[in-house]
């Protein structure tokens, strides 16, 4: 299972299908929550995840496609766009230190 130490996370990608709706909403929330952490948050279509992405965040329904598109990268999947426990945990790990492995 790919993992990364929180201090090595520079870029977080919210992978999405269309990039105009829910993922945009989540990315804006993450950007706000991680404002002081130095982590960049971007949203990109699931089939064009950039090489320099450190962690991928995507809806569980897109996880298989995200894994195929960016093999070997830690991937946090969620089910609820606002307030999903997996996303909350990721934010806390980045803020407080620890390892992201998913």
């Amino acid at each position: 299972m790919p993992s990364i130490d929180s201090k090595d996370i520079k870029k977080l990608i919210v992978a999405c299908d269309a990039g105009m709706g829910s993922s945009v909403m989540l990315a804006s929330q993450l950007r706000k929550q991680l404002k002081d952490s130095g982590v960049t948050v971007e949203h990109t279509p699931v089939n064009s995840i950039p090489d320099d992405a450190d962690v991928i965040v995507c809806h569980s329904g897109l996880a298989a496609r995200a894994k195929a598109s960016a093999p070997g990268k830690p991937l946090v999947s969620f089910q609820i766009f606002l307030g999903d426990p997996a996303v909350t945990k990721l934010v806390n790990t980045i803020k407080n230190g620890g390892t992201v492995d998913a």
């Binding site: 269309a18 829910s22 279509p45 329904g61």
Partner: peptide, 24 residues
């Protein structure tokens, strides 16, 4: 079509339907 792939329900009784990447 977009809704059939993944629900756009975001919580609090609200959904945000929108198109696909290909439909831009």
């Amino acid at each position: 079509e977009r809704e059939r792939s993944i629900s756009t329900y975001v919580g609090e009784g609200v959904a945000i339907p929108h198109g696909t990447n290909a439909s831009k």
